[in-house]
Nucleic acid binder design. Structure first.
Length: 822
DNA sequence: AACTGAAGCGTTTTT
DNA sequence: CGCTTCAGTT
């Protein structure tokens, strides 16, 4: 491989780095063969980059330049000629992180990175290895990767075959257990018998075995297998393992605190130095050059199988490991950082880091009490509008919630305010029913033996092939050990199906063979269009009168469009099975709403943190199920939340919140008591009932007027009284506010419904973002259709904003460009 | 085979 | 309160 970077001379790596940006540093950088990339690093970062030999753990606190270190390290390895791009294994958790790293290394080193084939997610790299040696683990190299949906359906079939009541033993629960086992690297025979016995009266272990067997016959793997089968491959085939051990001269791991046991085992195998490979020149470090970067304080995926222990035990696991701490934060102002640091200090079992900044103190972190979640949304809405008026970009504002049910309140509020927003996370593009149906068609075309895909679409659209017919196919397939499509081909020639079902099935099969032959001659995106057309799938949605049908059709179009980027159908299908994320249209200027989990790795000027109440945050179930470990993870989540903020962190809590339809009164989060008073200021809700004294201050002093006493007595009698007064007062006021907010509250079911199925509500963001001062072409009385709210009548016109009485969604204000006359 | 009502359940979710 | 899922009905 042509590799200009390889021409760089190897540099000595053990000089101690002078101050970053200093003249000496630059001189040294110059000496290092034009290694300008090193000059901008601080001493710790530089050590993390330049300590190339042996195991290294980089503890990178929030905002300390973690990604930068990682990418620079790769650049450095290349520039110093220590390895070719293809000899570096760099693993991340998300596709996004992988993409980012690729880009940034590319910028640093140039085109060379084109040839970094081993930079990717654990799973993507797992697939790559597995496809090469599939036959060694009993698979064919074109195996399919099942997603969760397929997995559950498969388990359901197994349960049925075993006569297990799926009422009592739900498939989802078992899928969860499987996931748990696989996260811990356990094969069926390794499952502790106690755990295996929990499910279906002791049949758990057996089911796991049956599940794996079924996967093999389907020539399929699930996500967990991408790692587990790799591990098995390595263990059973030492020569294969050695090949990879020799290949990877350097291993880099991002977000090490999130690795689970399986990933750890996988890494360990690859990082072991074999006796065959040449020992390092120095005095006997027998370890590979593995560098793990992570932050134990940001471990928030324990419930997903992540083992914080992996990072805590690093020195033990990799003897002789060097540890580099990155504690200089380049993101947040002093008060924000101090607040986060003070909070996280309440956790035990940390490796211990103290973040510091050279930035100004900035604004104090604020804590605002609200009467209920509605007031909370109103208060935050107002603060955002105020920031917006001052010229702050909405894009730079985020609302980070603990759980997605909290989002609704904000969406409702922002719709009435006409404030553009976008929900990040939510159901993903490829998880939507219409997309998965479309993909199922393509999967069957690509691999006729994909039974799960076939089953999914055999009667979608409805073509008279219901359970009974499918059962006939199943019976045949099972008896003759052939795939369903094959069974169908035979059965359709017999009279075991009704006449109607028979001709319908024949039509479908003919369709498939036709499409399959066209697959060779047509571009795959054109093929996809033809398939969706001829199968009647598009028509099905065209006929559907539900308000979200047009959106689904749009999604299908988008799917077809996105296929252009891939060489062929196989490539496309591989991509989507691994890359379940979508680059959501970050174009419009809109407030970001997301969960704290989704916010990891992101940063914003202003961060709103609502819902800091006991039972919500820390989440009750976390506490119930995980005890102190759960609490500590919740605290890390709080820490992640605060450290997302560059300039402003604003915490809110509501005393009353409606959960499952019932009003519940909560006490303020214990985390509030763990914030440092000196860096935090208690703010008055500007949108409360009575608006913080604007109406003559009916409440008297609340404890929030005395910041001095902050932190200990949210449950004090005085506080309780204050809350009561607020509550008592609000009852009168509440109806007024209810009227004012009516537009936002009416028909929210409908709205929620639409979003659930439709994915991120970016529509809403654009909707309002486009509202300029233009005059509308609509007039009162017009009958209109809106993609989300359905049909309705125009009630009033104000510029390009229409007030519409929707049949189902109630009265709403929307921008005219989003409705059409009917 | 397709619709309709009742019952159950209700965090976070990188691949 | 609302959504999803399933079983029973036509």
């Amino acid at each position: 491989m042509a590799d200009p970077a390889q021409r760089e001379p190897a540099e000595s790596t053990d000089f101690s780095a002078p101050a970053p940006g200093g003249i000496a540093a630059r001189a040294l950088a110059g000496r290092a063969g034009g290694a300008a990339y090193l000059a901008d690093l601080n001493p710790e970062q530089r050590r993390a980059v330049e300590t190339l030999d042996g195991p290294v753990l980089v503890l990178a606190g929030a905002g300390t330049g973690k990604t930068r270190v990682l990418t620079t390290r790769i650049a450095h390895i290349l520039a110093t000629g220590r390895a070719y791009p293809s000899q570096i294994l760099a693993v991340t958790f998300t596709n996004k992180a992988a993409r980012e790293m690729k880009e940034r290394v590319g910028q640093m080193v140039g085109q060379v990175v084109e040839g970094m084939p081993w930079l990717g997610t654990f799973h993507a790299i797992g697939v790559k290895i597995l496809r090469r040696h599939a036959e060694l683990v009993g698979l064919k190299s074109d195996f399919t990767i099942l997603d969760e949906d397929d997995q559950v359906r498969l388990i359901k079939q197994l349960l049925e075959a075993e006569n297990i009541d799926d009422k009592k033993w739900p498939a989802r629960v078992f899928a969860g257990m499987l996931d748990h086992w696989k996260n811990r690297g356990l094969t069926p025979d390794q499952v502790p018998s106690g755990e295996g016995a929990v499910f279906a009266n002791g049949r758990g272990k057996k089911l796991y075995q049956a599940y794996q067997e079924r996967l093999k016959t389907l020539n399929a793997v699930d996500f967990g297998d991408l790692l587990l089968e790799c591990i098995r491959l390595f263990r059973e085939n030492p020569e294969v393992l050695r090949q990879y051990q020799d290949r990877f001269k350097f291993i880099l791991v991002d977000e090490y605190q999130d690795t689970n046991v399986a990933q750890y085992l996988w890494l360990r195998l690859l990082a072991q130095r074999t006796s065959l490979s040449s020992p390092p020149a120095g005095e006997g470090t027998e370890q590979k050059n593995i560098c793990c970067v992570g932050d134990d304080d940001q471990s928030i995926y324990g419930w997903r199988g992540a083992e914080v222990d992996n990072i805590l035990r690093f020195e033990h696991d990799f003897p002789g490991a060097k540890i580099v701490r990155l504690e200089r934060n380049y993101r947040s102002t002093g008060h924000i950082l101090a607040t986060a640091a003070h909070l996280i200090a309440h956790n035990q079992g940390r490796l211990g880091k103290t973040l510091h900044t050279e930035d100004v103190d900035g604004e104090k972190v604020t804590v605002t009490a609200c009467w209920d979640s509605e007031e909370e949304a109103r208060a935050i809405g107002e603060e955002i509008e105020s920031l917006h008026r001052q010229g702050h970009a909405l894009d730079e504002i985020a609302i980070l919630v603990r759980a997605s049910f909290q989002m609704r309140e904000f969406e409702d509020r922002f719709v009435t305010l006409g404030l553009p927003y976008r929900v990040i996370g939510g159901p993903r593009f490829y998880e939507r029913a219409e997309i998965r149906d479309a993909l199922a068609y393509l999967r069957v075309i690509h691999s006729p033996s994909d039974d799960l895909a076939f089953e999914r679409i055999v009667n979608v659209p409805k073509r008279g092939l219901g359970d009974a017919s499918v059962q006939v196919l199943h019976d045949y397939a099972r008896k003759h050990r052939v795939p369903l499509t094959e069974a169908a081909r035979v059965v359709v020639e017999t009279d075991s199906l009704g006449a109607k079902a028979r001709s319908s099935l024949r039509g479908l099969l003919e369709g498939f063979s036709r499409w399959r032959s066209q697959n060779d001659s047509l571009p795959h995106n054109e093929l996809a269009e033809i398939v969706l057309d001829e199968s009647g799938y598009t028509e099905m949605w065209q006929k559907d009168r539900s308000p979200d049908a047009p959106g689904r059709l749009d999604n299908l179009k988008e799917l077809v469009r996105s296929m252009e980027e891939f060489e062929n159908l196989a490539g496309f299908l591989e991509h989507i099975s691994l890359v379940m994320d979508t680059d959501s249209d970050a174009s419009a200027d809109a407030v970001n709403i997301m969960t704290l989990h989704a916010a990891k790795g992101l940063e914003f000027d202003t961060v709103f943190l609502p819902g800091w109440e006991e039972t919500v945050f820390p989440n009750q179930r976390s506490l119930d199920e995980q005890g102190r470990a759960g609490l500590e993870e919740e605290r890390r989540l709080a820490h992640v939340g605060i450290t997302r903020a560059r300039k402003r962190a604003k915490i809110f809590f509501a005393t009353n919140r409606r959960t499952h339809g019932l009003w519940q009164t909560n006490i303020p989060s214990r985390f509030l008591d763990e914030l440092p008073p000196a860096n935090v200021e208690v703010a008055e809700s500007k949108a409360g009932f009575g608006a913080g004294g604007n109406f003559g201050g009916p409440f008297g002093p609340s404890r929030f007027d005395q910041a001095a006493s902050f932190g200990s007595d949210y449950g004090s009698p005085g506080w309780q009284r204050a809350q009561k007064r607020r509550g008592g007062f609000s009852e009168d006021e509440q109806s007024d506010f209810a009227d004012a907010a009516e537009g936002g509250r009416m028909g929210t079911n409908f709205q929620r419904n639409a979003r659930r199925r439709h994915g991120p509500l970016t529509v809403e963001g654009e909707l309002v973002a486009k509202s300029t001062g233009t005059v509308s072409a609509f007039s009162p009385g017009d009958r209109v259709f809106h993609q989300k709210f359905g049909n309705g009548n125009v009630v009033a016109v104000d510029g390009n904003k229409l007030t519409i009485a929707f049949d189902k969604a109630g009265e709403k204000r929307v921008v005219d460009s989003f409705v059409e006359r009917v």
